[in-house]
Design a protein around this nucleic acid. Sequence first.
DNA 1: TATTGTTATACTCTATAACTATA
DNA 2: TATAGTTATAGAGTATAACAATA
Lengths: 155, 155
Amino acid sequence: MSAKSAPATAAADPGVSAWKTILELVGWGEKVAPRFPMVAMELDLSPKQLGVLWRLDPDTVEEGLPMREVASSLYCDASYVTDMVDRLEERDLIERRPDPGDRRVKLLALTPAGESLRDRALEMLYTPPEGFERLSDEERRTLSELLAKVGAGSA
Amino acid sequence: MSAKSAPATAAADPGVSAWKTILELVGWGEKVAPRFPMVAMELDLSPKQLGVLWRLDPDTVEEGLPMREVASSLYCDASYVTDMVDRLEERDLIERRPDPGDRRVKLLALTPAGESLRDRALEMLYTPPEGFERLSDEERRTLSELLAKVGAGSA
DNA sequence: TATTGTTATACTCTATAACTATA
DNA sequence: TATAGTTATAGAGTATAACAATA
């Protein structure tokens, strides 16, 4: 498996070429700006701050999310979560609530302003790239089904 | 278009749900670690440093790439490219070459060590997530074709 | 004793501004 | 005068270690 032959082999596998296209679409190729950081920047948030807002889905985390869980879910240190939360709290986007069951824990939840900013972010993030318009309705359905099969379990 | 109704509408559009799955697969969802930064970390590179190596494809940029082009392609400042290149050069991964045509310009090119590190990185990056194994050969071909249509022009 | 979160601190990442050399 | 790259510097992002409160 020499350095020269590996790429050729890879290109022949439709799974690999599909995956490469996905990386391009998402902004980890050469021509498109990375989507997630771009959305964050437009909303004056760092990517990780947007990550915090994102996890705080009001529909699923009614009571709030322990900071520790946010930290592990974002792959960053707890002390940094403290810092981000401080600043998001100053901007009145989230709030800390005591956990009735364990007084060490603080639960994070969105304020109304935070909810609406999160909504705007998800709307931007979830808008498919323009290339999707080149597919027919049926092709879009097929694509969605195939990807759902791929993503089952992780998505 | 209230904040509550928007997500429901989105879920009904197969284009949107396909795109959401893509975001999950790539690590911008909740359960998977972001792929690109992870690959970089495993190779002891920052994501942007990996970006530099990535652009320096020996097959397409024979003579080397001007630093200015690398900067704009990575959406970062030229001074930061200087810094990254300093450190990549210290690690003997890339080198600066004079541009015979314009003596202000420096061309970046991979050393042999840089080439092999880049190969390793691309091999990791281009390995599709495990979920792809759930597709038949024909499904993979279909997926690849549909995505190629979506990505045409940007990929 | 182990765990949640905070504080203090330091290190890495990245941009701005001023500068040098070339065009 | 304008452009490619560098230097010096400052600011954001992020981690480590020591600590307080609670379990």
